[in-house]
């Protein structure tokens, strides 16, 4: 009897993990591969990039405001909402209802949010009454080096 289950579209698409092969050799009755003793766990990019899955969201960079930080137009950002924002973090921040990517500095309890692009105005001093909400901390960014991804 065939099982339909194994071929359901959702299952196939949801296969989030793409581990590199763990067993290089199929089971065989002959001489085992000497390399089998040296196999480590496979590397899973999800594990590497995502620490807290339900709190992690992907954003896309639009514009050049963080060029000097090595973040470019079109890059993907892995944003973790569960990380406590710390001095030096790059954050997705909502300033007066606008989404913005900024470097966060905390000096003596004073918050500064700044762009990192020489062509942009220096820093962005916050004004009294500005509404600031840090949406999440950027854990890493993903940049493709080959056209077409």
């Amino acid at each position: 009897m065939f099982s339909f289950r194994s071929f359901h579209p959702l299952r196939v698409r949801r296969g989030a993990r793409r581990p590199l092969p763990y067993f290089l050799e199929g089971l065989c009755a002959g001489f085992p591969s000497p390399a089998d003793d040296y196999l480590d766990e496979s590397i899973d990019l999800n594990d590497l990039l995502i620490r807290n899955q339900p709190a992690t969201f992907l954003w896309r960079v639009d514009g050049h405001s963080m060029r000097e930080a090595g973040i470019f137009h079109g890059d993907l950002l892995v944003v973790d909402r569960s990380l406590a924002p710390a001095d030096g973090d790059i954050v997705v921040v909502i300033v007066n209802g606008e989404r913005s990517l900024k470097r966060l500095q905390i000096r003596k309890g004073q918050l500064t949010l700044s762009f990192e692009n020489k062509d942009y105005p220096e820093g962005l001093a916050l004004h009294e009454g500005d509404e600031i909400e840090i949406w999440g901390v950027v854990r890493c960014s993903i940049h493709w080096h080959r056209a077409g991804g």
């Binding site: 969201f57 992907l58 954003w59 896309r60 989404r99």
Partner: peptide, 13 residues
């Protein structure tokens, strides 16, 4: 579809 479609991710400026 902000969380499930690569072409529709939220944008940050």
């Amino acid at each position: 579809r902000y969380t499930t479609c690569l072409d529709e991710l939220p944008l940050v400026f």
